[in-house]
Design a protein around this nucleic acid. Structure first.
Length: 347
DNA sequence: AAGGGATGCAACCGCGTCACG
DNA sequence: TCGTGACGCGGTTGCATCCCT
């Protein structure tokens, strides 16, 4: 039944653990010729293995850009948070953890993180406290559907942000290398002039919270280097929240994070680990700005854009680049946000 | 010291997707 | 449009090592 294995046992191909000699042969061949077609690689490289086995060995072990060894606390948190959003989509999760393979992350989840969450009384599949999962409110099919819907949106957003990061970086490199000096990033004002009159460009991509908190409007960006500019912010009627680069929820007071934790039930579960970790790391003497910045940094790292936050000038221009290179996405965002919750499409 | 269960991780399996003829 | 092959992905297996009794 199903597709036959790519390498039958009677073909005399070796299976099981790789020897150092085999590793060396594979490594040497790929370094010299690249991998090209995996199907024909083994015989060319002088290996008694099937192509699939070679590919796996290369992608999961031999590739030079793989970091091996213990996962850091930050990596653990990223995995937990992304798993809450993406589920068992290991390859998608792996794209947010540089130098880690999907197989390694999957193994680490199954052998460490899943158990740890279970011991903490948290359902590793739903990422909610087990008690809550069984409660009548959570068991309500409407709520379950709502949460699932939200998770789908958040998942899409995360992937989009990661894509933006990559594309924006590429775009900047291309501009830096090939473009004349006058082809500089558009200023915020220039972008505002290009936008439809109804909207100014959003300073974030968090459709989900925009949806949760009501129909948003997009204020002109604050000038200078203030906090809301760096984290990306949107106001929605009576609410204010900082998102995008930072994704920090808040109410309409400016002292954000604590209020967010109190007010937004849906996010409590979703961000439980990251917030508690931020509080933990900032210690008792934290101020809210510090909390926001730490959270912003981690959020950004989770979507693969850590470089931005380390370069203040880059942050300043990134929004503009993002908008320019992703116009179609922004228009989708604006459309969806203005659809209102009841009209959002269900995947 | 021995053996049996638990754990961690590399490797395999089979299905889905995509490109190409 | 359909068939086929290659590749990628997630689930599962198997084995080496560790730990406990």
């Amino acid at each position: 039944m199903g597709r036959s294995p790519c390498c039958e046992a009677d073909q005399g191909l070796k299976r099981g653990p790789w020897t150092a000699e085999e590793d060396q042969k594979l490594l040497a061949y790929i370094q010299q010729h690249g991998h090209g077609s995996w199907r024909f690689l083994p015989q060319k490289a002088g290996l008694q293995r099937c192509g699939k086995s070679c590919r796996l060995r290369w992608t999961n072990y031999l590739r030079p850009d793989i970091k091996r060894g213990k996962f850091s606390l930050q990596e653990e948190r990223t995995i937990i948070q992304l798993h809450a959003l993406l589920g068992n989509r290991w390859s998608a999760i792996a794209t947010h953890l540089p130098k880690r393979t999907d197989n390694e992350i999957k193994n680490y989840w199954n052998t460490h993180l899943k158990k740890r969450l279970a011991m903490m009384g948290i359902d590793p599949m739903t990422h909610k406290p087990k008690r809550t999962t069984l409660s009548s409110a959570a068991a309500d099919p409407k709520n379950v559907s709502n949460l699932s819907h939200m998770a789908q949106w958040e998942s899409t957003r995360l992937e989009a942000e990661a894509r933006f990061t990559r594309e924006s970086k590429l775009s900047r490199q291309v501009r830096a290398n090939d473009q004349p000096a006058e082809d500089q990033p558009l200023s915020s004002d220039q972008i505002l002039r290009k936008m439809p009159t109804t909207f100014a460009p959003p300073r974030c991509t968090d459709i989900l919270r925009a949806w949760q908190l009501g129909r948003p409007h997009f204020p002109r960006p604050a000038q200078g280097n203030d906090h809301s500019r760096n984290t990306g912010s949107i106001s929605t009627g009576g609410h204010f929240f900082s998102l995008g680069l930072g994704n920090i929820g808040s109410d309409d007071k400016s002292d954000g994070s604590a209020a967010f934790l109190e007010n937004n039930e849906a996010d409590k579960g979703e961000s439980l680990f990251e917030f508690s970790a931020v509080f933990e790391d900032c210690g008792n003497g934290h101020d809210d700005t510090q909390l926001d910045e730490v959270y912003a940094t981690r959020r950004l790292e989770a979507v693969g854009g850590a470089e931005w936050i380390e370069d203040e000038n880059l942050i300043e221009s990134s929004f503009d680049h993002l908008y320019e290179v992703n116009k179609s996405y922004w228009s989708d965002v604006l459309y969806l946000v203005n659809c209102g919750p009841s009209n959002l499409p269900v995947f």
